[in-house]
Nucleic acid binder design. Structure first.
Lengths: 203, 203, 203, 203
DNA sequence: GATGAATGAGGTTTCATTCAT
DNA sequence: AATGAATGAAACCTCATTCAT
């Protein structure tokens, strides 16, 4: 294996261990020594691969963001022409997100809990990320309005936030592990999709 | 003023200062000395009113929880018999929540950001709180189903979470201060209520 | 005792302990813990009085500089009109410097040894200090030339450096403790003064 | 080239790089990695040629000492029979020393700054070296007294120290680079020699 | 009751040195 | 012989908490 790849592999190993430890103990309660101990390496080794403790959280979160981005990018916001198509798209995205978060619960916890208040800069980044995801969702809604399959008077910005909030709430269940099996996941996806498209009062 | 009340008043003062400081600098980045300095008291005095640093965050959060509870308790989940009545109720609750969070932005930030990952126990409490609020919302939904103005096949648990997620997302705007004036607030409340009752596709 | 004065007294105590420890073990080999242990205080206490390790060396050196300055300022460079007067002045200054350095050997060692290469900035400061002392000496020489009791063609800048170098060498003896008693001191002062005024070849 | 010689050549290369790096950054601020990087070698390689970090400073200083010794050994302390001859000798030695220190400023800095307080043992060695150089100078002075061209009552020990102090001060100028060109060097050598032989008051 | 000086556990980080490749 | 990944001792420094005044 080329040394460059080996380094990358090591970074990944350490990042994984860090993610799990952060998720288990919390970012602040985790010492570099805890991460190193989990891997059975000297804690000095950590600093060969990451600048400092912040750096690894940043790295781990960028990974999460990338993977979230991959799921979102797997669909084209302008590809749908009917509500049914869009709804199918939403289900696919929802299942992708659930898959991601339930397959690696540490990621969910990092994203929803540990990164939020780790420090001021992370907080801001987290809030920025929410805004960014709202923008993505808004693009889908805009497509619906443009195509005429969503009401022209839909408040896109507010609705995008609200839709994301629903998904957020659903995924949060993954943090507590209460969306583990396929049936449960299906229930969440269906429930949220229904609410999203027809509301609680809709049929 | 009786000494007991004086003590209570002092606790409140310290708690307020702490809340603002936590919101500004973050829980971990805030030192006891920072809080004391803001009040112009010796930092040893702090410990006459609170056991430790955790204790004050706990106290502040319990205040927030109490005030949130007050808003929610201002309505009766079983009092409504029609969708219109329930919708009016939701608007009232939403406006109460927005009022609370925008009138004291520090509270919003504490609730949404600082308390989330302060430490493992707070995280758990935060997740518990979400569950508790879902239970409250579920009671409203259950009432609707029982009364027949909401569909019988509504997945109450999932929907309650999703509804709260929408509200959560809306209130989050308050953290960034983008829901300051009355018009903006109205827009959020209306947008979210519409989505909640008729979905994005509904008229 | 007013608290301000108490703080000053404590700083002095810590500075003294630091000076001795630096002199005994060397600046880099000395840990904050060593200084604290010598005083029987917790090492955290150190940081109440000094920002960090560099800070205390800076403080101690500024003290040394101040005391050196006091000795030099005790004479007036322009007050003498004859070689004999100037020579008497030199003897007085020399004795003052010897007194200072032999009464507190730690000071001598700090000045000549520990501060020199502590870090790059200290090195530069040390070199600057040498230049500054040369300027002072030059003022005396200039007075001599102006008054006509020193040769008009004296290279003042070079001579000032050289004179200081002689004194430097003499005081260095104090570092090793070989100029402890009064007789020994007298020998150094006389020897250097003779060399300074008439050279090795002079009568 | 025989392997033994090759090793010696490599040691020299590393020592040169170390000397420059120490001079530029300071002994303590210099890491083995810095030296290795300058040479474009792996920092593990360093340890094939030197036992440890101290070892290389020791080696570099021994080189300096050797070269200083070469300059001093180029003259015979007992060869002179008149003041004029001795004075010429002093000028030659002085020029040799200036030549050495200005041609390689790193050496000057190492000798005067970095080695002084590197650690306790180096400090002692540095003080020892001063004593040793004083002994050499004393031999010249003793010769002058024995031959009758220096006063019989000259305090040889003190004067030797003082003379070296003057030279020390002069060479120090090289550290700051203010004795770079030939004219400047001549000025220093002449100024110091004059002071040494006839004092500031002498003609 | 109020204070702030004192404390030291605890955490981060560096870097000289080793050693398997 | 050369390398650089791994190591952990060792140092610095912060800050929540205690407690004598």
């Amino acid at each position: 294996m080329p040394p460059e790849e080996l380094t990358e592999r090591r970074r990944r190993e350490i990042a994984d261990a860090a993610a799990i430890t952060f998720a288990e103990q919390g970012y602040h309660a985790t010492g570099i020594a805890d991460i190193a101990r989990r891997l059975g390496i000297g804690h000095g080794t950590f600093y060969r691969y990451f600048k400092n403790k912040r750096d690894i959280l940043k790295f781990v979160l960028s990974e999460v963001t990338r993977r979230l981005g991959d799921v979102l990018a797997s669909e084209d916001p302008t590809a749908t022409t009917t509500v049914e198509e869009y709804r199918a798209q939403v289900v696919r995205i929802g299942e992708g997100l659930f898959e991601l978060f339930t397959s690696e619960p540490a990621i969910a916890r990092l994203f929803y809990v540990e990164s939020v208040g780790a420090d001021h800069e992370f907080s801001e980044q987290w809030l920025d990320a929410q805004a960014a995801y709202a923008t993505v969702t808004a693009r889908y809604l805009q497509n619906g309005v443009d195509r005429g399959f969503l009401p022209a008077d839909l408040d896109i910005e507010v609705s995008a936030r609200a839709v994301n909030g629903m998904i957020f709430a659903g995924l949060l269940a993954a943090v507590r592990g209460s969306a583990g099996d396929a049936a449960e996941r299906e229930r969440w996806v269906q429930g949220i999709t229904r609410l999203m498209f027809t509301g609680i009062a809709g049929g």
